[in-house]
Design a protein around this nucleic acid. Structure first.
Lengths: 170, 170
DNA sequence: TATTGTTATACTCTATAACTATA
DNA sequence: TATAGTTATAGAGTATAACAATA
């Protein structure tokens, strides 16, 4: 059906008289419709772009943002338990376990059973972990600087909003 | 080593004299350190929360945000090609293919080979797709309303910032 | 040569459920 | 009973590379 399709979309009509359109690379004149005004959608897109840019910054085979955040949280909260770490990152404990096994295998963290409550495992950075984190921080700061260039003085406001959204499920 | 560990973190000291602390559920007094001021981190957390809330809204076994966005984009751009859809969603074409096979299997979209350029496949919603989208929109609007309640009049500003970030890799 | 779309494949992230041990 | 952590497992989402058809 609709054999002689002319496509309401994909014709050569975009950009008027064949003029290349700036901003062509992604949207290519695609209409977003209701998505245009949807926070959830733009959140997804922005996070994806930030993630890809971070991966690019840290030169391929580096640690992913998740590992990186975990290292940083352990650094700032030495002795934190796995569960507390999971809560801080909003991840289930079963997601935290393999992550830490990884970091331990790399020699970046130590895990010690608590004496007062032997169910707990306390996490601390090793010297190697500290050093690796230092290198990673250089990459991450570069990435963060790019983001800051984009948002400028609206950074505080943006972070405030993002934190409020992050707390929505609580 | 460090046998008699007292843990600089996990003590009972938080909240002063045993007073329950508001906001305890996630951070539980965890220090974020540099992460505190990092846009990338808060972006990740906010997106995660939004994603989980969306999943909750759409009653478990519903369509995920990705499928939903694809349906919406097809609706607003009838005849769009797979590649263009991929660009609009910032996804590789090889990620788009299975997504559309899924939507076609559900009977929500049709795929027609273009006549003018037989490499292209044009996408359109079926009546069933339209109807399903209507139902989904109800859920999604509920979710979006929650987000709007959080950000209030700062919505336009937030979306503007997110779009700029989403364009960072371009 | 370049582009559209498909396939095969592999990797990451995540959660659920069932389990152990501890409390 | 409730919590901390592990394991097994499954599912979603994504990308890379090689490929066929087409331009």
């Amino acid at each position: 059906m609709n054999a002689g399709r002319k496509t309401s979309f994909a014709g050569k009509s975009r950009g008027g008289a064949g003029v290349p359109v700036r901003g062509d690379r992604r949207a290519a004149g695609v209409r977003l419709g209701v998505l245009e005004g949807w926070i959830g959608f733009h959140l997804r897109m922005a996070q994806g772009a930030s993630f890809r840019a971070f991966a690019g910054c840290s030169g391929r085979r580096q640690l992913k943002p998740g590992r990186f955040a975990a290292l940083l949280l352990i650094k700032h909260n030495p002795g934190i338990t796995q569960s507390a770490l999971g809560r801080a990152m909003a991840r289930d404990k079963s997601s935290v376990t393999p992550l830490l096994q990884d970091l331990q295998r790399l020699g970046y963290v130590t895990r010690e059973q608590s004496q007062s409550d032997r169910r707990n495992v306390h996490l601390t950075l090793t010297p190697a972990g500290r050093q690796a984190l230092g290198v990673l921080l250089a990459h991450a700061k570069r990435h963060e600087r790019r983001l800051e260039e984009i948002v400028g003085r609206r950074k505080t406001l943006l972070i405030g909003l993002l934190r409020e959204i992050a707390d929505m499920g609580m």
